[in-house]
């Protein structure tokens, strides 16, 4: 077999858009950073929302830093495999972790985690806060969020709440919904958002909460019914949906926030360079436009900083730990 590979492989090599990976380089001078390719580790599959956001910002960041950025998908166990991998890397700035809200829920979901989100990482800055939407099958009875709250209160035994699996943003949002309304519903877990939405469109389950990145198309086409967005501000792509606060459920405020991390022993000088590149990327018009298509926006410059990011991480760990423990959900 190998011998016959020559022709196609040559064309592959010609086409390859990324340059050769070099290895190691632990004792590099921080002032000279970056001298080689940088890897962004994404804890979820290629093509998913987190991967998409990463690839969007990687391009302008790469231009700003003057080096290639390679996106690597390391899936598994709610993103803890990827985070564990980056935590164990040299703090040289060449391995950067992109992670979302799951960074703050991992300690509660996985009690014997081998790393600490706060102690084993330095934060670079927040990237975006993807709004979530509360959606239902199109023939579900309640017409507004208020109706929905009353309806699930009266029919807690029969209503089904779908989610995309353990630790998924949709599950967290669902838990927060149950807590805000004060009901205990029957949850129907799926292996990912795609299958969950399929059954929602098909009318097999009643409602769920998921990111705009996944639901905007189906809401606009009328295949599913949207009740509200879970952010303080309305979402441009979905002008008809009120915010949860306006619709009478202010406790339900949640977004899938994303941020960049490096190992804790990374010099501050490198962190500053990465933060500066991130801030430039977030003002890139192409990034803004494409994020708008996804139903989200880049964070402001104040938030794309290590301080704001660390504060967000601490606040979120405090928020989710008791909710997850109360719900008895555990990854261990």
């Amino acid at each position: 077999m190998p011998r016959r590979m020559r022709t196609p492989v040559t064309s592959l090599a010609v086409l390859a858009v990324l340059s050769l990976a070099a290895c190691g380089g632990g004792d590099a001078d921080p002032a000279a950073f970056p001298e080689e390719d940088i890897t962004f580790v994404v804890p979820f599959s290629a093509g998913g929302p987190t991967d998409t956001v990463t690839r969007l910002i990687a391009e302008p960041m790469s231009e700003e830093l003057g080096q290639q950025i390679i996106v690597q998908n390391v899936e598994g166990a709610g993103g803890t495999v990827a985070a564990g991998q980056v935590a164990g890397e040299d703090g040289d700035g060449y391995q950067v972790l992109m992670h979302h809200i799951g960074m703050s829920t991992a300690p509660a979901l996985y009690p014997d985690l081998e790393y600490s989100p706060l102690e084993d990482f330095k934060t670079i800055g927040l990237v975006t806060d993807v709004p979530m939407t509360i959606v239902a099958r199109d023939d579900f009875e309640p017409e507004t969020l208020e109706d929905l709250v009353t309806y699930v209160g009266d029919n807690a035994d029969t209503v089904t709440l779908a989610n995309a699996g353990i630790g998924a943003a949709s599950q967290l949002c669902g838990l927060l919904f149950e807590e805000a309304v004060g009901v205990d519903l029957t949850e129907v877990p799926y292996d990912g958002t795609g299958p969950a939405l399929t059954d929602l469109v098909g009318g097999q389950v009643d409602f769920m909460c998921d990111q705009t990145t996944n639901t905007t198309g189906q809401i606009l086409s009328g295949d599913i019914k949207g009740y509200a967005v879970t952010t303080p501000e309305p979402v441009e792509a979905l002008p008809d949906l009120p915010t949860t606060a306006d619709a009478g459920l202010p406790e339900l405020e949640v977004g899938v926030w994303h941020g960049l991390y490096v190992p804790a022993d990374t010099p501050d000088e490198i962190v500053e360079k990465l933060t500066a590149a991130l801030q430039v990327a977030l003002t890139d018009q192409n990034v803004i436009d494409q994020m708008a298509d996804l139903g989200t926006t880049p964070v402001t410059e104040d938030e794309a900083t290590p301080d704001a990011h660390t504060a967000k991480l601490e606040e979120q760990i405090d928020l989710w730990t008791p909710i997850i423990e109360d719900a008895g959900v555990s990854g261990e």
């Binding site: 190998p2 492989v9 592959l12 990324l18 990976a21 290895c23 190691g24 890897t39």
Partner: peptide, 26 residues
């Protein structure tokens, strides 16, 4: 075979696999 595999996976397919690992100080 090693030369061939390095050619295919590291150079042509651009897999992020170090040719020399940490144990060898690479």
């Amino acid at each position: 075979l090693t030369a061939l595999c390095l050619g295919v996976f590291v150079f042509a397919l651009q897999l992020r696999l170090p040719i020399l690992g940490d144990w060898l100080g690479g």
